[in-house]
Write a protein that binds this DNA or RNA. Sequence first.
DNA 1: TTTGTATAACTAGTATACAAGATAATTTAC
DNA 2: GTAAATTATCTTGTATACTAGTTATACAAA
Lengths: 256, 256
Amino acid sequence: MAAPPKKSPSKRAKTRKPRAPNSPPRSSAAKVPGQARRNSEIVYRDLRDQIMNLTLSPGTPLAENDIADRYGLSRTPVREAILRLAEERLVDVFPKSGTFVARIPMTELREAIVARKALEEVCVREATVKASESWRAELRAIVQRERDLAEAGDAQSFHEADNAFHAGIAAAGGYPGIWTMIEKIRLQVERYRRLTLPQEGRMNLVADEHAAVLDAMEQGDADTAVARMNSHLNKLQIDIGTFRHLWPDYFLFDDQ
Amino acid sequence: MAAPPKKSPSKRAKTRKPRAPNSPPRSSAAKVPGQARRNSEIVYRDLRDQIMNLTLSPGTPLAENDIADRYGLSRTPVREAILRLAEERLVDVFPKSGTFVARIPMTELREAIVARKALEEVCVREATVKASESWRAELRAIVQRERDLAEAGDAQSFHEADNAFHAGIAAAGGYPGIWTMIEKIRLQVERYRRLTLPQEGRMNLVADEHAAVLDAMEQGDADTAVARMNSHLNKLQIDIGTFRHLWPDYFLFDDQ
DNA sequence: TTTGTATAACTAGTATACAAGATAATTTAC
DNA sequence: GTAAATTATCTTGTATACTAGTTATACAAA
């Protein structure tokens, strides 16, 4: 309970009702704490999306003043947004100096992919065992949608369906929270994926791989399902040598 | 690049040097961005530790004003600390209403344990294959230290050594970043552990289990090492019925 | 030209003031 | 006495002002 006093700009006097301790989250109002009502939340989402898009490329300076002016806000909500991004390692804050869109750390990227595979493996295995028929139908529907979107060439929607498939498997396995963790990991991997994935025919390939995973799940063959998911995720595997020369400024290597 | 203007309290005029874009993180100064020089960082660490200690128990109200007064700071750094805690789900912020130490979410806890096992499994397996002799010596030293601390009954230091063992395995496997992820997961599990672990003789048991894992690793038997680590981590497994009645106010259940 | 130094202009960190919503206490109507 | 309406006083969200540290620039000295 102790708290080290430091200076002493204290002015407020505390002589009111102490309010019952352990008072629960109240009754009404504010259903979800993390809703998008605060301006800082809007700025956060916006900046995050632009960083993930590579609209804001690695190394770009982000001045709180500039952003505040652009949004017509004060520095306070902008700063809160930037602090969130810093925590997620999407920006680097250099105190009293400057803030920059973070470069993509190659070694962490490698670990992120390993971690993601480990977590998805758990989800697929559990989903194979316990997924209800309604979940399997949902997953089939997503794969079908992926095929349609691949045909139509709608990369953005396809990407969303892709995510929905993985999220669906986690949910079917009873692990929505693990999907949340995977999404955090994805923040790190996504920029890399965007750089390396504008390949032709990739969407149809992904849909096929998803279908293969789902087939194994429906046959109750967890090991095969896991193996197929792993091979699917292995497509993210990185070729350091190549990208080091292609976009030298976008990545951060250990020996730098 | 576009940013939706909203109101218009813009005042600053930007007519200076645009500063070379993509300018790198500069040369000198500020070695590590996330250093503990900022007051907000101090407050964050302090509050986080108190929450993990259960010194600040689940449900306790945290008023920014009170904390600011206690530390002799303004609300700004305190608020930044609280926002970080909110992101880590250690506190719940109810806008314009109040902030409270979060209750321990039972279902997320279960998933957190599953995720941790999946990630530690990867680390143990890789460490078994590739750990250098110096790392194995380091791990042996940690286990020995655990035995000493168990003998001395120093629970706090033992806890740190416990962590060092798991961190060491991750590092030996070449996955320090995965250990960082595990530490984030641990934030959720730690309070639960503190509630349930004041058992007699627990420290010696833990040291034995660590030693068993290390033995299998040294014999190059990855499967056994993984199995032993899993059984070690399974000790965290939860008995919902019990705790629901023991500390009804500390936990959050789905049906609430 | 090169090097050192002073200075100006920028940066993020913090303090303070105010706004707007939510809760608790009080008053009013019945 | 009970319940609805009002008011007071909490809370967090945001705006603004100021502090302190860093980097770039101009300029002087060699």
